[in-house]
Amino acid sequence: MIYKIISTEELAPKTKMFEVLAPDIAAKAKPGQFLIVIISVKGERIPLTICDYNREKGTVSFAFHEVGKTTKELGQMQAGDTLENVTGPLGNPSEIKNFGKILCIGGGVFIAPLLLQVKAMKQTGNKVTTILGARIKEELFMEEKAKTLSDKIYTASDDGSIGYKGLDFLKEILKTEKFDHCVVMGPVVMMKEVSEITKPYGIPTIVTTTPIMMDGMGMCGVCRVTVGGKMLFGCVDGPEFDGHQVDFEELVQRQRLFLPEERVASLMWEKNIGGCRCDRKKA
């Protein structure tokens, strides 16, 4: 099997979307599922959420943010290059049905997969309010696409350089508007915050957890998350869980388990390729 990169797109600084040839996966992919990508023979297995698929062309797409060794190296690859392996679709698909009026919230790179869900939710008849969040203005992307897919959209950033500053405005919205369902995909801190905001209003809130994973098919247990006091595996029981039940603190702690090693890998890689390439793109 050859997993060829068909096209690449820069969504924001250090954030890219790749379309990859993988007909078997494309035939079965559904919103909410993820892939495990291996970029080279000695590479690690990294989970990335499916953000689009084309069953006719036999392609799947994923978006990634360059944070460590593997995603940085992936960022250097171009259309025509091949990946060592892509496994998927993994994890349970999102529950897509007519809930009524729903809130879809995406942060950072997860805006891309969120919009796949927004599209499906809209098609099943939901009235969709979408919130796009980013750290800074330059990192917000796909705003136009979100507008065409949703009934209403809001934008927000950490520093207020675009849209609302922070997520406090959501509290105001909820005081006047009623929602039947909420989905959040983004950094853990953001999912935690949204879950806390929706809880008093009793809005069922589904978050996409991103624990460290390895096999992604239930064999190792590194992805364990505590949900409602129970130990579950992110890859096979999730990755989506009830945000009001997830132990976010533990999740953050477990995500950082290999931080020192990841730093070493990243620094060594940068040294080997002749210095940091951050300067290539304005960040």
Binding site: K42, E44, R45, K69, M214, C220, F258, E261, V264, A265
Partner: peptide, 17 residues
């Protein structure tokens, strides 16, 4: 799995720690 399949005993030559 880390050690055998992903060869993490040979990290950082192999990427998995």
């Amino acid at each position: 799995i880390r050690n055998n399949l992903m060869k993490s005993f040979d990290f950082p030559e192999y990427d998995t720690p």
